[in-house]
């Protein structure tokens, strides 16, 4: 597992207070991990802080799963 994936999952576990087993790459923040719309905004902000990047609102709208987040951040860093 990539370093980015580990860090993304750690943030999700901390912010949503969910069990580690549930935080798989296909997990949808809202449907699978019990997040609401405000949680997803906060998650995106936490990703920005952790990875020192900016995630524009239109890109953030497309980040609904762990995998979406990892892919976006890896693209930015690549």
């Amino acid at each position: 597992m990539s370093d980015v994936a580990d860090r993304v999952k750690k943030i999700v576990i901390e912010h949503l207070g969910v069990d580690e087993e549930k935080v798989v790459e296909s997990a949808n923040f809202i449907e699978d991990l019990g997040a609401d719309s405000l949680d997803t905004v906060e998650l995106v902000m936490a990703f920005e802080e952790e990875f020192g990047c900016e995630i524009p609102d239109d890109a953030a709208e497309n980040i609904s799963t762990i995998k979406n987040a990892i892919d976006f951040i890896e693209t930015q860093q690549g």
């Binding site: 405000l38 949680d39 905004v41 906060e42 902000m45 802080e49």
Partner: peptide, 10 residues
């Protein structure tokens, strides 16, 4: 300002 928590108001 963009770092303000979405929970700030509620």
């Amino acid at each position: 300002a963009r770092k303000l928590s979405p929970f700030f108001i509620p």
